[in-house]
Write a protein that binds this DNA or RNA. Structure first.
Lengths: 234, 234, 234, 234
DNA sequence: CATGAATGAGTATTCATTCAT
DNA sequence: TATGAATGAATACTCATTCAT
């Protein structure tokens, strides 16, 4: 399975210089194995025994970390969604324009479909089975939506409907991109998101201007304090 | 399982006055049973044996009509999608305005989520597993989109992206409505589709006006000639 | 399936100019279909439904002709064995030397393995499941064996053992030839049967001499009287 | 199922004083159960579920030891053939005369048909489905054949044909004996093998002399060193 | 904690046979 | 006689989960 783009790649790996306790290490190995099998076989086709086999462990071991088959997938769904979320939000930390913040979120999301189709499809699979995947992202989108509205950038009558349009469009577009059905993803994304922004009440010119701004880089998170301290000593 | 609204209810039933041959009758009973089980247990949880049991038949009988487990679901997906499609298109037969045609399609679709949540969720399940469900509808949407564009009602740069926004939004909205997560579906649908129409390039006022027009009735299809003739004789 | 050599080919076909009643014709079609399926799938893998399908009939029809699955195979076994037997015996009708008669029987048998491997393997399959295949041939072999003994050509202490050596050797050799494991069947058969004849008490020189005599032609049977009569009228 | 004669009986049992690990014990229990069911129902009629039932285990357990239905039968075929082979070869270890070695092999083989008909028939069944059964024995027979030839005892033109006569005759004779069709097996075997030896080029008197020599005892193998040591300590 | 053998209910699918038409 | 839809028991194989070691 092709690696995730850097800022996401480590969501299952120990932080730099970090050496998590064995229990945690085993758990991550299992989740990594689950990713592999899920990508290859799909949710329904993924068995505990194969996850264990891929992780190089005995089937029984899985149950020392997860009470149930479902629990593995759910843990994975939450971890993946949370990490993606964190990184995206962090990438537009300094930006004040609600419309731009939201456009960045959507662009980053669709960018994942283009650069890591396997991961994107995995995320889609999990989002269907585990609503948390989306529920975890929603608050951030809603925050940006309200910000943009208060700034007079969006003109939205029904927040709920707006969020549904945003997520519905992005989920579908991500799938189509990841499945290789979109010939020129860059242009496609640009046009698609301009339409969405217009739907949210922006004038076409403003939407185009927002989409023309550069996408801020997608950085690694600052290492947690403890890890940073340890690294300094080494 | 609550009945489908009238114009759809008969997609598995014999036409009025029709008495299909036994083979066809059994096939429909099986599909009906499949609907029940699918709704209750979900795609992955639906076994051939339970379909047979619900249909009051032996497991082997299923294989006189479908070569494979998949084939049942696929047949159901296609039948459901096709019927819905036919009825919707028929309901706006006389209407010339592309924007209105498209808005009617979307409204009718979401209306199904409201009036027949179980059926709507079934359709969603099937649409994930069988792309045909959507591919069968696409050409009609695309036709209306182009019509509206040629009439100067829509201003769309990328047809593909536009279609994805339409379908993505409607699929997600339909699910949320069917799952009862939307408090006031009427208003929600109105606002949602106005946003979509704006995204497709309409001015807010025009979008509002289109959405204000009445939804044409959803009629039973004219019976096929042969059936009508037979009925007249009876 | 490659045709059987002429004198055997017609064991499932109507005699020349013959037009058997429909019942008989259907029965033969079923047996022919059974041959095809058996050759392709083996005894255990042959289903009634496929025989019917290959014969272009409904499964139920089979049961108008055979009470049971077994019965088809048995009928086929007996028919095939009987026909082969008849033709072989007929081919050495005029020959008086018991040793030669027996050698001809064995040669003809192995010749089938070489010229019609598929049929030979079918015959082997059937002979394992239906002892009749062999029991039908035995009396003829035994007759020839006794003749040769009374002529002082064979020196055999135990008839039963002799017959078992003959059949055991021929059955195994036929299989190996039919499966293509024998590089030079002609020489192989010659050496093999010389050994068998020596085992039956002949001197090597006599055995060689018998095997050097030409194999009499394998002719079509004289048509049965009734058929001949009918043909003359036509 | 009647026990196998001693030297063969243990091919599924732990060596004396041995206590194999659990996995191995279970595997042998499964093979033993397979023997029972195969003998009673035949190859085609033997189901995994019945093997498991007879072994007192759950059906799934079988698949922890054999990947496939076939694999059980094959494992059994190989184990049975190998053990028989080993014991026979060992029983004529010190004998130098190739003709005698070969005659002992054949006699022992047919003796199994007489003393353990059920096992013999099982072996026949397996030998039809799994050529390995015979292929494993062939090299030894071929070795003896060549030895006898080099000693001037056999006069054989075609090794391949000779081996086929030997195996063909023995397989058929074994079946007939095991099925109780032979009234006086001792005499029968003696006459049969004299014929075979004559076929291989011996003079009748020599063949009779070889067959008159006593059959060497059929001993248990020397226990492996480790096992012997352990036993001494106990 | 990790192991991995064992479990046993569950699954899709096949197929000989019956029987109403 | 032929049909072919229906039957329903049978079967190989899977897999989440348990538990003794």
């Amino acid at each position: 399975m092709p690696a995730l783009p850097e800022p996401l790649a480590h969501f299952l790996l120990p932080e730099d210089g970090e050496r998590p306790p064995k229990r945690e290490r085993t758990r991550r190995q299992l989740l990594q194995a689950a990713v592999q099998v899920l990508s290859a076989r799909g949710l329904a086709g993924t068995s505990i025994q194969e996850i264990a086999r891929v992780a190089g462990m005995a089937p029984g071991t899985v149950y020392n970390h997860f009470r149930t088959r479902e629990e593995i997938f759910e843990a994975l769904a939450v971890a993946l969604s949370t990490t993606l979320n964190e990184r995206v939000v962090q990438s537009y930390q300094g930006i004040e324009d609600g419309a731009q913040r939201m456009s960045i979120g959507m662009r980053r999301f669709l960018w994942l479909g283009e650069t890591s189709p396997a991961w994107a499809l995995l995320l889609m699979q999990l989002s269907m089975a585990f609503p948390q995947v989306i529920e975890l992202i929603k608050p951030y989108s809603l925050g940006d939506l309200r910000l943009a509205r208060s700034q007079g950038r969006f003109r939205v009558a029904d927040e709920e409907a707006a969020i549904d349009m945003v997520f519905g469009t992005c989920l579908r577009a991500m799938t189509r991109i990841a499945e290789g059905e979109v010939a020129a993803p860059q242009a496609y994304v640009s046009e698609l998101l301009q339409m969405v922004l217009c739907g949210l009440g922006m004038a076409p010119a403003d939407a185009a201007e927002v989409m023309a701004r550069p996408l801020p880089p997608f950085a690694l998170p600052a290492a947690p304090l403890a890890a940073r301290a340890r690294r300094r000593l080494a």
